[in-house]
Design a protein around this nucleic acid. Structure first.
Lengths: 173, 173, 173, 173
DNA sequence: GATGAATGAGTTTTCATTCAT
DNA sequence: CATGAATGAAAACTCATTCAT
């Protein structure tokens, strides 16, 4: 992967996150990456290929987060880790998450399957803790995470820690 | 507002919700509405003007929902109503909500101000019920609603009632 | 001729003079005249018909000027009158002359025939005064008038009278 | 500047001169230049950008003419050169001058500043020759030139040399 | 006489993509 | 690997004109 290729991916991620995939022309990406437009097509075949590459790059980063969580044995710790997740999106990951969330709404791209292992781990944890309806609890948490991420990605966040504590209390964490 | 104008708005809402605003050409809208493309521009000036009109139409519908809720005096009832909100998005309102949620991610269009009255009412309710941190509780609920709506709008929903009950239990409703 | 018809003509003259015939849409004319677009077509058949009407209105005014001049018997007076012509374009006639001059450059519209009687009268006057080459003198004056009109119509004029005097001196007027 | 770019400029100049800027579509220009329409926008950004490029090209040619004249020391020669100017517009320069003159009437485009140096040189020459009102004489000549150019550009010219001589006699040239 | 909704053909502009160098 | 000229198709938008009311 040459420097220019990386530049393209970085610029594409930024622009797609900021202005949306459909509204970002390849020429804009090329300009922002300081690269000729032709090069994008040489490396990524077409606009869709570029999106795929950007997405894959993002997904790999996401997987690292998830892997750590799923491997957590202690149920309370696992739930806590998941709840904490959206509260600590890092500066450098903003764009990636914005794009991921924005793309959910672009019909074809949504792929729910990646959520499965996490939901499974969650259900398992709630079972261990003796909750009445572990599946529902898992769904609930998942929904909350989506909402929290949405909220944090869309507006500059305030007193998050307070909110996080209030939330954790609901699960006696 | 003539019949054709209404058709344009209806078609635009549907298409924008399905395929996204940027990816839906005005000619597609015109075709779907059974109308000449020029008419769109005569009535709505711009592609953006059409979007604005569609959005306004949607917002007016949304306001009706919200007004009812904000006026609820009993705190438990108010919280319950809000929690229930995303669980009963009606068939005919799907498109409108999809568009609204999808557009949040389109930079300029997001307007957080409409949330204020609801958040205020929520905080008030939690205060009355003696919760320790009413503001945080209100935020929490709001985040959850966003997540739930997202979830329901993106995948065909299953056993919602169970989830709703589990959720209500957390607030002793 | 109804009030609205006159409004249309007036607005068209103004806009055509200011922005050119081709760049002025009928809808702009209608708006500026406070009239529905359809009315323009009812009264003037099409855009070209409107131009023709505007032009005819202008030409009639111009003919009045010319008629007086051509009828002047005294050769010195006739020449003087013609030379003076562009120096005293009136406020209310600006638009009409601007349009006339601008339209000369719009291929088809130029009609040199209206100049003939004036050129004839001029040549005759120079003959009477014993000039060597009356035809050339007539052409010369005509060219000058065009240039002067152009100049006065394009930039806000200064010390015209001085210029006029200098000019008249050349013909011992 | 590639061959195709030059073709576009050449075709645009020709068509704009013949039919006017507003009435010449970019597609017509593209067709006449044997080029895809898109190329026009890639190179000149806009329809307006194309006009600007055409104009600049023309202005540079015009400056060459003027520079020679302004540098002439002998006053009689300078005046003579200027008077002669419109009488010898060359075949290959017709289009350029037609466009320039036609565009004067298109509101925004008129820029009188380019005349200044020539007017100055003229005034100076008349001063040297002891004319009573050199400024007025300069204006007069300038007006005449505009008229002559207008006349020659609009109708196929006849016995110009006779006219030129008659004119020169007035200044004892 | 007058309106304003509606059209269809055209115009300007954008954009993904190809290709010679 | 990299550029940038060039294309063709589609998108956004304009506009003269028609027509029912």
């Amino acid at each position: 992967m040459t420097e220019k290729q990386k530049n393209i991916l970085k610029s594409a991620l930024k622009l797609y996150a900021q202005e949306g995939y459909a509204s970002t022309s390849t020429s804009k990406v090329a300009r922002s990456a300081g690269v000729s437009e032709g090069l994008i097509f040489r490396h990524f075949k077409n606009k869709e290929g570029l999106l795929a590459a950007v997405l894959q790059m993002s997904m790999e980063a996401a997987k690292l987060h998830m892997a750590d969580i799923v491997m957590t044995a202690d149920p309370k710790e696992l739930i806590s880790k998941i709840l904490t997740l959206p509260f600590k999106i890092k500066e450098e990951e903003y764009e990636m998450w914005r794009l991921t969330y924005a793309l959910k709404w672009q019909t074809d791209s949504y792929d729910a399957s990646s959520q499965e292992p996490v939901k499974l781990a969650l259900r398992n944890a709630f079972e261990k803790l003796g909750y009445e309806n572990p599946a529902a609890e898992a769904e609930l948490i998942y929904m909350f995470i989506d909402g929290a991420a949405t909220s944090f990605l869309l507006h500059p966040p305030e007193h998050r820690s307070e909110i996080l504590n209030t939330l954790k209390a609901k699960y006696k964490l």
